[in-house]
Nucleic acid binder design. Structure first.
Lengths: 167, 167
DNA sequence: GCGCGATAGTTGTTATTACAATCGTCCGCA
DNA sequence: TGCGGACGATTGTAATAACAACTATCGCGC
């Protein structure tokens, strides 16, 4: 059980600042990307995850966890990315229920066009106000939050895609 | 102009942790409130802002800025709160374009029922991983983000509602 | 080998959200 | 005084999101 029912003043201020600052930040990053790179922030996030995955691919369920999105939402998001040729779907050879979302060459090109826009935003709106020590603090705190609320997310590190079968 | 095109590793990690941790956190806080207090996180946020405002009221535009929400979105949100008798609208006497959202007694009761749920969530999922020094760092960093992206938000502190006219 | 609970993904449906356009009001200025 | 741009709020509309239900498949236990 908790010992206190209230948050102390510092914690309260911190939480409110995070809530409001985050809302402003993602709102701005999203509209910057829409305006200059023709994609939303969640599109960008999906493309980044895929670009960093082995063979540029991730099963839908793992991708949904990685970007903290509902499975049904991801289905329609990947539909949209597929219509724009940024991503394709491939059936897993080892589990016939599972599909990979795969980053296409066009998708990688789009990502490479988008990232300077995004990085400039993160730098100017966020990192410019954050020294390295503060950055480490943020990573620690939110890392602990992630570990608390999604302890299974570590497993994604150990994921390996199907080995390519000889056709 | 910026001197660097890349974020350093600490800043990158911090930003990613914030993005993911925030998504998990608000998702959980929202579903906790829906389950145990019959309101969403944004409903709660609106009620809190009103409860802290003089005479429990705020013009729609100020309220929208305070909770970082579009004006049209707030219109429909307040419609919903009004249907549930948690809030009412009152026309401003000094500016006939402007309407106040006013927290009702029922709204205050609902808020008092909801806040233990919310505070417990913030404490357990967030504050438990955040010592006072870290909390101050978060408030500093996100306070700077807010000042960068919404410099006009300070003005809200100076707001005063209509003085009550003698009927 | 067979059944059965669990899992991956999609679809039906509904709620939520933002943008653009609109209406009424305000206020600075000639 | 009255004109014109700005502002507050709402509405029409379309995009986006989640939940629940459903299908197909997996893999454990016997």
């Amino acid at each position: 059980m908790a010992e206190k029912d209230f948050l102390d003043a510092d914690q309260e201020r911190a939480w409110r600042a995070v809530l409001k600052g985050h809302a402003l930040l993602v709102g701005r990053l999203d509209s910057d990307l829409r305006e200059h790179a023709d994609m939303s922030l969640i599109d960008y996030d999906v493309l980044v995850q895929l670009s960093e995955a082995p063979e540029r691919r991730l099963p839908m369920a793992d991708l949904a966890r990685a970007v903290v999105y509902s499975r049904s939402g991801l289905t329609r998001l990947v539909d949209s990315l597929e219509r724009r040729s940024l991503v394709t779907r491939e059936r897993s050879r080892s589990d016939r229920r599972s599909w990979y979302a795969v980053l296409t060459d066009d998708g990688l090109t789009a990502l490479e066009a988008a990232w300077p826009v995004h990085v400039a935003g993160v730098r100017d709106y966020f990192a410019a106000h954050t020294d390295p020590e503060q950055a480490r603090t943020l990573a620690t705190v939110f890392g602990a939050v992630i570990a608390e609320l999604a302890p299974d997310h570590e497993e994604l590190r150990h994921y390996h895609p199907d080995q390519r079968a000889t056709p």
